[in-house]
Design a protein around this nucleic acid. Structure first.
Length: 200
DNA sequence: TATAGGATAGGCT
DNA sequence: GCCTATCCTATAG
């Protein structure tokens, strides 16, 4: 059921990002099981990718986990407020990763609402990378956790995702010029209400 | 050591 | 649609 290490350790983060759509992500944190279906991802691929923290082989205390073999989690804080969840991919020494940007919530919805302070039906529950990390109970301290352990993991439940239901577009928040600003490495499920804005 | 700015989200106009 | 909280990190001096 859990995706095997071989899924993550391919040296093609763009392919992994696409294939993570429709997979089920779970966390078991503070005794609470929460999870849902991944509906939006972004790929960050290699030292040439100007959008990546590992651009130009940059390796710092923050991002060194990106250089590990695939199948572990890379967590970092954005804008001083939001914890971001990434899945490290590729073989040892590469710096590929996939940012999980949105989840269709399925399990432990009450727990996720409490963590998010949303107490009614609200499509914002896991919409956006900061939102889903908070709903799933993930913080920077979870950096480096292996996806084959029992704190956070991803399962293939044999749900078919049609190619025609996948939209590829430019990644969000790329504030610089060059080809990596517009390269279509963001993937999301067409029409899904849990996909973050902007819808381009 | 100092400082600018970020792979965002939520609230307000 | 615009504004900004909030703080860690990367980078320059």
């Amino acid at each position: 059921m859990k995706l095997p290490l071989s899924f993550y350790q391919r040296n093609d983060a763009v392919l992994v990002a696409r294939e993570l759509l429709g997979k089920h992500i779970y966390t078991n944190i503070d005794g609470q099981l929460t999870g849902g279906v991944i509906v939006e991802t972004e790929a960050y691929q290699g030292p040439e990718d100007r959008g990546s923290h590992a651009y130009n082989h940059r390796k710092t205390p923050r991002n060194e986990i990106m250089f590990k073999a695939g199948g572990v989690v890379y967590m970092y804080i954005c804008y001083g407020i939001h914890d971001m969840l990434n899945v490290v991919t590729g073989t040892d020494g590469t710096s590929h990763a996939v940012l999980i940007r949105a989840v269709d919530p399925r399990v432990g919805i009450e727990t996720m609402r409490e963590r998010r302070n949303l107490f009614t039906e609200d499509t914002r529950l896991c919409r956006g990378p900061g939102a889903l990390a908070k709903a799933l109970g993930l913080v920077k301290a979870h950096n480096g956790i292996n996806l084959l352990e029992d704190k956070i993991w991803i399962e293939d439940r044999n749900e078919i995702v049609n190619e025609s239901d996948i939209i590829a577009s430019a990644r969000v928040g790329m504030n610089y010029d060059g080809p990596y600003k517009t390269i279509p490495w963001r993937f999301y499920m067409k029409g899904n209400k849990n996909v973050s804005k902007p819808h381009i």
